[in-house]
Nucleic acid binder design. Structure first.
Length: 420
RNA sequence: GUGGGUGUAGCUCAGUUGGUUAGAGCGCCGGAUUGUGGAUCCGGAGGUCGCGGGUUCGAAACCCGUCACUCACCCCA
C-alpha cells in the first residue's frame, strides 16, 4: 500500500468543517482590517529563503525541503510565508502603489522535522504582512488582528507576549554584554546554551531549562541598551495596545527564531498544545525588503498555525451545518432506476440539494441510506410509480407521503421544500 | 538527528506460563418485512496478528533486525 509521507496529513471530510470555520473567521477579520488576499507559490529559489530567514537558523540549516530543478537550479518548498510575500511585493513593484500594501495568505508550509503533537512536515499557516508603514499603529493593527481572530474562535488559555528587540545597532551593542555575562555563568547553563553563547546568545534567554532561566535572571536586559528611538517606538506600540484593550505580557526573554525580526516581536502561546506552546507569532522586519533587493521598506507581520488552532478549537464551536433540506431519490427496478436518475438531475438543476446511493437496489436499502444521510425527504421512484407517472415524496420525519407527477416534479416539490 | 511508547477485523480493543480453528463491541451486508428507514432479534462477510529472520514439536505471544505510527528532546506555527 502506498502511504502518505511522514508528517504529511490528510484532512478527511469529518474535519474540514472545523478548518473552514477557522479559515472563514481569519479571512473575515483580515478583510475587516483592510488586508487583501495574496496567493504565492509554494516553492521558490532556495536563496530567497536562505537570505531572508538567516543562513544559520535551524530552518535553513537542516529543515528545508530542497531539490534541484532540471536545469540544476536549487529550489525549496517554502518553510514560511513572509519571504515569498516580500519577493512578490518587490517583483511587482507594489511599493509604487499608493494604497497601503497589506496582504494576508493561507497555505501549506514545509519543514523537515520529526513530527510530534502540533508539529508536522507539511503544516498550514494563516499569515499577514503589512508593508510600508513605519508607525506603531501598524504593529498594533497587526497584533490586534491576530488577537481578534484567536479570540473570535474562543481558543482557550491564550497569552500574548511581546518584546522589543531594538534595531540592529542596539543588538550589536547588547550582544557583547550578554556574552560576557553568560561566559561568567557558563557552568550553570545546559549544554545547548553553552553552544549558543557563540552561535545565538539571545536564544539563551528563551531557554526552557529551569537552571538556565535562574542563571540568566540577573543577565543584562536588552531593554537597557536600546536607543531612544527604539524605546519610544515600542512605547507607542504598547500605548496603542492599551488604548484598544489588547491584553499583553512583556517578556524581555522573547526571541524569535528568524533572523529578520527587529523592534516589535510577539508571540501568542497557549497551555493546550502538548509540548508545543506557540499558536502564532510575528514581529517587525524593517530590513528584509531591502535585503532582498527592494527599496527600504518598513514591514510588520505574523503567522499562525492552522493545525494548532484546529487542535485547540472547542468542538462546540463547530456547529453542524444547518439542516439543509436534502431530497434523497430512491430509484429502483428497471424503469424506476432510469426515472430516478432523471428526477435526481431535475432536482439538482432546479437548485435543490439531492442525493442518491446507486449501490442500493431495494427500497429498504434506499431508505436506510436516506436516513443515514439525514435527508428530509425521499422521492420514491419504483417501477409502479413509473407506470402511474407519479413519484412518492416521503417526509422522513412525519412519514407522510404525497404523490408527485414525475413530469412536473419541480413545481410540485419546490413549494413543499420552502414551506418546511 | 536522539530517546521512550505502541503496532491483532473498517474503528476501539481482548487474547492466560508459548498449545490446536485468533475473539468481542461498534460498524458493514443480508433476513425476519416477496416495495417502506431508525428499535429488536437472527444470520453473514471481513485478518499476510506491521514486515523479515531466529528459537521451538508448536509463536499473535519469546529473541534479533527492520518499518510505520506516536509522544518527547531539539526547534518552531
Amino acid at each position: 500500500m502506498i502511504k502518505g509521507i511522514k508528517g504529511v496529513k490528510d484532512l478527511l471530510p469529518e474535519e474540514t468543517p472545523r478548518w473552514r470555520l477557522i479559515e472563514e473567521t481569519a479571512r473575515r477579520w483580515a478583510t475587516g482590517y483592510g488586508f487583501q488576499e495574496i496567493r504565492i507559490p509554494i516553492f521558490e529559489v532556495t536563496t530567497l529563503f536562505a537570505r531572508s530567514i538567516g543562513a544559520s537558523t535551524d530552518i535553513v540549516e537542516k529543515e528545508m525541503y530542497t531539490f534541484q530543478d532540471r536545469d540544476g537550479t536549487s529550489l525549496t518548498l517554502r518553510p514560511e510565508g513572509t519571504a515569498g510575500t516580500v519577493r512578490a511585493y518587490i517583483e511587482h513593484n507594489r511599493a509604487a502603489d499608493p494604497v497601503p500594501q497589506k496582504y494576508f495568505y493561507f497555505g501549506p508550509m514545509f519543514r523537515h522535522e520529526r513530527p510530534q503533537a502540533g508539529r508536522l512536515r507539511q503544516f498550514h499557516q494563516f499569515g499577514v504582512e503589512s508593508f510600508g508603514i513605519a508607525d506603531p499603529r501598524a504593529d498594533v493593527e497587526v497584533i490586534a488582528l491576530l488577537w481578534r481572530v484567536l479570540s473570535a474562535l474562543a481558543l482557550p488559555g491564550l497569552t500574548l507576549e511581546i518584546n522589543n528587540l531594538g534595531d540592529t545597532a542596539d543588538r550589536e551593542t547588547y550582544r557583547p554584554q550578554l556574552v560576557a555575562y553568560l561566559k561568567q555563568h557558563e557552568e550553570k547553563l545546559c549544554g545547548n546554551c553553552k553552544r549558543r553563547i557563540e552561535t545565538n546568545p539571545l536564544r539563551v534567554l528563551d531557554c526552557k531549562v529551569p537552571d538556565c532561566r535562574t542563571a540568566t535572571e540577573a543577565a543584562p536586559h536588552l531593554a537597557d541598551t536600546l536607543s531612544e528611538k527604539a524605546r519610544t517606538y515600542f512605547a507607542g506600540v504598547l500605548a496603542g495596545l492599551d488604548a484598544i484593550r489588547i491584553p499583553y505580557h512583556l517578556n524581555h526573554r522573547l526571541v524569535r527564531g528568524l533572523d529578520y525580526y527587529g523592534l516589535t516581536t510577539f508571540e501568542v502561546t497557549t497551555t493546550n498544545l502538548g509540548a508545543q506552546n506557540a499558536v502564532g507569532a510575528g514581529g517587525r522586519y524593517d530590513g528584509l525588503v531591502e535585503t532582498l533587493g527592494g527599496p527600504p521598506t518598513p514591514a510588520v507581520g505574523f503567522a499562525v498555525g492552522l493545525e494548532r488552532m484546529a487542535m485547540m478549537l472547542p468542538d462546540t464551536a463547530v456547529v453542524s451545518t444547518p439542516g439543509y433540506t436534502t431530497v434523497y431519490v430512491a430509484g429502483f427496478g428497471i424503469q424506476g432506476s432510469a426515472a430516478g436518475l432523471l428526477s435526481l438531475e431535475e432536482l439538482r438543476k432546479a437548485g435543490i440539494r439531492a442525493v442518491s446511493d446507486f449501490r442500493s437496489g431495494t427500497l429498504k436499502a434506499h431508505l436506510r441510506q436516506a436516513d443515514r444521510l439525514g435527508c428530509r425527504y425521499t422521492l420514491i421512484v419504483g417501477d409502479d410509480e413509473v407506470v402511474k407517472g407519479l413519484g412518492v415524496l416521503r417526509n422522513m420525519e412525519t412519514k407522510v407521503q404525497l404523490d408527485i407527477p414525475l413530469l412536473s416534479l419541480i413545481p410540485h416539490v419546490l413549494p413543499l421544500l420552502s414551506g418546511s
